[in-house]
Design a protein around this nucleic acid. Sequence first.
DNA 1: TTGCCAACCGGAGGCTACCTCCGTATTGTT
DNA 2: AACAATACGGAGGTAGCCTCCGGTTGGCAA
Lengths: 189, 189
Amino acid sequence: MSTTTGQRPMRADARRNYERLLAEAKASFLEHGADASLEEIARRAGVGIGTLYRHFPTRLALQEAVYRVEMDELAAKAYELAETAPPEEGLTAWILTISQYSRKKRGLTQTLKAVIDLQSETFVRCHEDIEQAAETVLTRAQEAGTARPDLRPCDVLRLAHALSVASERAPEDTELLLSFMMDGLRPRS
Amino acid sequence: MSTTTGQRPMRADARRNYERLLAEAKASFLEHGADASLEEIARRAGVGIGTLYRHFPTRLALQEAVYRVEMDELAAKAYELAETAPPEEGLTAWILTISQYSRKKRGLTQTLKAVIDLQSETFVRCHEDIEQAAETVLTRAQEAGTARPDLRPCDVLRLAHALSVASERAPEDTELLLSFMMDGLRPRS
DNA sequence: TTGCCAACCGGAGGCTACCTCCGTATTGTT
DNA sequence: AACAATACGGAGGTAGCCTCCGGTTGGCAA
């Protein structure tokens, strides 16, 4: 998960291998989807399969490490939009950003969903960060009267993910589907 | 795909094995998700692995056969709702039905999406059937003024699938998410 | 510097699943 | 009853998963 044990820093060779693995995993997941061969990742990283399993005991642990960074990027985008865009536009843009990000990852939307929904101990932290980001964008839209007051941050995340899945094979319809959703998020008139 | 070659009927033993395989596949997919072991399916059907591959050359072919039947059931439900429920309620109920159906299948939502989105030759027929059903429900809602006129049947299918994925791990929120979506489907006021 | 040991590495090995291929068995027709 | 045509089954080669443990390396203390 982290590059430190929480006690002593990792040995130099361990840290080097950890980072090579992370880099190759990122590339492989992008290229082959979430079920990319772990043995190939180890091979490409120039490392034994045993080393991979030592650093990342399960496939999920590896995916988790890869996406932790990218989650941070998504959260950062939310705060950025909150400062640079008008409320409703910010919300729309952020949902679209998540959706595009998810699609880039092909089968990894499954993993992203786990981050959003699963109560897994290890995912809680990421979850909180991204939900905090969602809340920032959402609250602004609600205060501006362009989003229903009963909408919760996790609803926004789910809808964004839903959008990405729904339009995965028909990207050209993403805008239209998003417009349906956004209409649904406005206060009832 | 079909139990006949289109020419001569299948031999008795072939047909028997075909149906056993289909039954076990249905059970296995339900139990283990879309990546259930094909060898186990053959084993449970009391049939050699070779026989499985002869009838269903790919995993997708098998999934396809299993879901063809269930697609028909979904379509039937749409026509039923069109006769027994008011327009908007019918649309809502049908989206919910699809969503529940998808969730039951765990990882098979992926396959369902393929049916809806993929232009695969073999899926076209199913696609047409289900889209026809979607159109029936949708048109009624549009004529009653409760659905946006620019909404297409495939949008409804995608949204339904999106709903099922989005609420897979939080079924208790399905209703709420659906209400957001339905608000979005109404004509702009 | 040298020596030591905890930390780390690597890959062989046992397992399961995938898919192909072809000798054998079954069906139904003449 | 005999013979094609059709279908069966599982051995076998490949690949991925994960574990286990003998060997190697890095960093610290003397």
